[in-house]
């Protein structure tokens, strides 16, 4: 496995010319150019998300009846929308919300999935069977449709989207983590821990959970991109982010559909921003998977 060897090579001692960390990054960039691109995109997006609001060229919410649907020009670089608001400003601010939705939903699903997966795999028995039926039933729904149904039930709000995404993605985490837990159960040191009388909670928390971390990371990075896309798709279908919240999904929905042919810039810029970020997350996730879990490479 050539790539594995390359990755192991990352751990060879650094030469004094450059600091070790920088060298590592350079090597990473050379060996995984896609992954490095992903990292660059994410770092850039994070910077925009953090300092963006203070560097936006225009007011994001202020409607301007005399600047409606202007095509991109030197004042409004990305043009203006149907309320006369600057699209560049809103794309910058939307980064924050889209990432927030993705990351918080991912953390929620990962936490829930870890707890359920570890306990389900560790205890087994009836508890496991019941949990797995729930997981099966939830996984049966294509995620977008489940999201539609959940949003129809919960009503539109940012928190409800996060809740719905957490519910949809928890089974994915649960399945993977349960499988890892099952194989860990047979590992000698955990058996040893059990023999010396460690409590179940202690074993799960200190021995099982940390060892599932690599898998959690892999599932997480790949989920975030999908979550962001589902958020956008929900908005497109009119059941997503409320429009007063500036998210890329909301910018692509509602009025945008009605004005897209005549003023395509109102949809193209948020759509491109979303695509670039999800692309970055996905290639970063691939690279991460290669490094953390060579067995799963490419899948």
């Amino acid at each position: 496995m050539a790539e594995e060897q390359k990755i192991q090579a990352l751990d060879t001692p650094a030469k004094p010319l450059l600091s070790g960390r920088l060298r590592k990054w350079l090597r990473f960039a050379r060996q995984k150019p896609l992954g490095a691109t992903g990292v660059a995109i994410l770092v850039l997006t994070a910077i925009i998300g953090v300092i963006g609001p203070s560097m936006t060229p225009h007011e994001p919410l202020k409607a301007d009846a005399y600047a409606i649907l202007l095509s991109p020009n030197n004042i409004y670089w990305f043009g203006t929308d149907v309320m006369g608001r600057d699209i560049l400003t809103r794309v910058i601010l939307g980064a924050r919300v889209s990432l927030y939705v993705g990351i918080v939903s991912m953390l929620a699903a990962a936490t829930l999935g870890s707890i359920i997966g570890v306990t389900s795999g560790y205890f087994g028995g009836k508890y496991d069977i019941i949990i797995q039926r729930f997981v099966d039933a939830l996984s049966a729904f294509p995620s977008l449709l489940l999201a539609i149904a959940l949003m129809a039930a919960f009503g539109q709000s940012l928190n409800n989207i996060i809740l719905a995404l957490a519910i949809i993605f928890t089974p994915r985490f649960t399945r993977v983590i349960r499988a890892v837990t099952l194989s860990l159960k047979e590992v000698p040191y955990i058996e040893a821990a059990r023999t010396i009388g460690c409590s179940n909670i202690r074993i799960m928390a200190l021995h099982v959970f940390p060892n599932t971390f690599a898998s959690v990371m892999v599932v997480s990075t790949a989920s975030v991109g999908t979550m962001i896309i589902i958020e956008a798709s929900l908005s497109f279908l009119g059941v997503g982010t409320p429009s007063h919240i500036i998210s890329w999904g909301a910018m692509l929905s509602g009025d945008t559909q009605a004005y897209f042919s005549g003023a395509p810039w109102i949809g193209i810029f948020p759509g491109m921003a979303l695509t670039i970020v999800v692309f970055g997350i996905n290639v970063f996730g691939d690279a991460l998977r290669d490094i953390l879990d060579p067995k799963l490479r490419g899948r």
Binding site: L34, L252, G271, F279, V283
Partner: peptide, 19 residues
Amino acid sequence: LRSFAILGLAMPSFFVALL
């Protein structure tokens, strides 16, 4: 080629369709 494939995953299908 891989970038192209991942791009397919990264673009919301409605956005592709509208374009």
